[in-house]
Amino acid sequence: MQVLRRHEDLGLQPERTALAWVRTLASMMAIAVMFLKWIPDFGWLVLPPIIFASAVLLWVLFGSQRRYQQGVVGIAHDSIRAPLCEVIVLGGSVAVLVSFGFFLLYMIG
């Protein structure tokens, strides 16, 4: 088990950032559940977005400790790297899921 470092940030920046990523996890879970609700209407067509949303959810979950550690170390060194890759991948995955949802709605409409 890895021991997390402490920091001297009274604003608790790493904790606030970690909570923001938890809210992101909840959003991805809600998207997956929304697609689950569509199984009676679309059958197996909703399985790819459910699997994709679940994969993104797990990717965010397993990267959370690393991002927290980087925030704590960044505070100690007065230099925090923005998680640009994570944000771009997450934004792209949300765009893909929304596009797939619109596609399915277009199919029935």
Rank of each mutant, 00 (worst) to 15 (best):
residue 7 H to P: 00
residue 90 L to G: 04
residue 67 R to N: 00
residue 100 F to I: 04
residue 62 F to A: 02
residue 57 L to S: 11
residue 14 P to G: 04
residue 102 F to D: 03
residue 13 Q to A: 15
residue 40 P to N: 02
residue 108 I to T: 13
residue 20 A to I: 12
residue 38 W to R: 14
residue 23 R to H: 12
residue 4 L to C: 08
residue 91 G to N: 01
residue 22 V to F: 12
residue 3 V to Y: 10
residue 109 G to N: 13
residue 42 F to V: 02
residue 4 L to I: 08
residue 109 G to K: 14
residue 105 L to A: 15
residue 50 I to H: 03
residue 105 L to E: 15
residue 95 A to D: 05
residue 21 W to V: 07
residue 90 L to N: 01
residue 80 I to R: 14
residue 9 D to V: 06
residue 8 E to I: 04
residue 16 R to V: 06
residue 85 C to L: 14
residue 34 M to E: 12
residue 56 V to N: 09
residue 9 D to R: 06
residue 2 Q to K: 15
residue 7 H to L: 01
residue 105 L to W: 15
residue 102 F to M: 13
residue 67 R to A: 01
residue 108 I to W: 09
residue 60 V to T: 04
residue 78 D to G: 06
residue 71 G to K: 02
residue 63 G to S: 07
residue 33 V to D: 04
residue 107 M to E: 10
residue 30 A to G: 11
residue 98 V to F: 13
residue 87 V to L: 12
residue 43 G to L: 02
residue 44 W to S: 15
residue 24 T to L: 14
residue 95 A to V: 08
residue 32 A to M: 03
residue 56 V to W: 07
residue 1 M to W: 10
residue 27 S to C: 12
residue 96 V to Q: 05
residue 23 R to V: 01
residue 68 Y to G: 06
residue 69 Q to N: 09
residue 3 V to I: 13
residue 65 Q to V: 11
residue 69 Q to I: 11
residue 9 D to K: 02
residue 47 L to A: 09
residue 45 L to R: 05
residue 64 S to V: 03
residue 79 S to V: 07
residue 25 L to F: 08
residue 71 G to I: 01
residue 79 S to G: 09
residue 55 A to W: 12
residue 66 R to H: 08
residue 74 G to Y: 05
residue 83 P to L: 00
residue 61 L to F: 13
residue 60 V to W: 05
residue 21 W to A: 15
residue 60 V to L: 08
residue 60 V to I: 15
residue 33 V to P: 01
residue 105 L to V: 10
residue 8 E to H: 13
residue 15 E to V: 08
residue 34 M to L: 13
residue 72 V to S: 00
residue 4 L to T: 10
residue 100 F to S: 00
residue 51 I to G: 08
residue 72 V to F: 00
residue 26 A to I: 15
residue 11 G to D: 13
residue 3 V to G: 04
residue 43 G to W: 05
residue 15 E to N: 08
residue 72 V to D: 02
residue 100 F to L: 05
residue 37 K to P: 00
residue 108 I to L: 14
residue 103 F to Q: 00
residue 38 W to D: 11
residue 62 F to H: 05
residue 108 I to K: 15
residue 81 R to C: 05
residue 49 P to T: 02
residue 60 V to A: 04
residue 33 V to Q: 06
residue 4 L to V: 06
residue 97 L to Q: 03
residue 59 W to R: 11
residue 15 E to Q: 15
residue 8 E to T: 10
residue 4 L to Q: 13
residue 68 Y to E: 13
residue 53 A to P: 03
residue 2 Q to V: 14
residue 96 V to G: 04
residue 31 I to Q: 10
residue 44 W to E: 15
residue 28 M to T: 05
residue 55 A to V: 11
residue 75 I to L: 06
residue 71 G to V: 01
residue 55 A to L: 15
residue 104 L to Y: 08
residue 59 W to S: 04
residue 33 V to L: 08
residue 38 W to H: 09
residue 105 L to S: 09
residue 40 P to E: 00
residue 39 I to T: 09
residue 37 K to N: 09
residue 95 A to C: 07
residue 68 Y to M: 06
residue 109 G to T: 13
residue 31 I to E: 07
residue 27 S to Q: 14
residue 57 L to H: 14
residue 4 L to R: 14
residue 32 A to H: 04
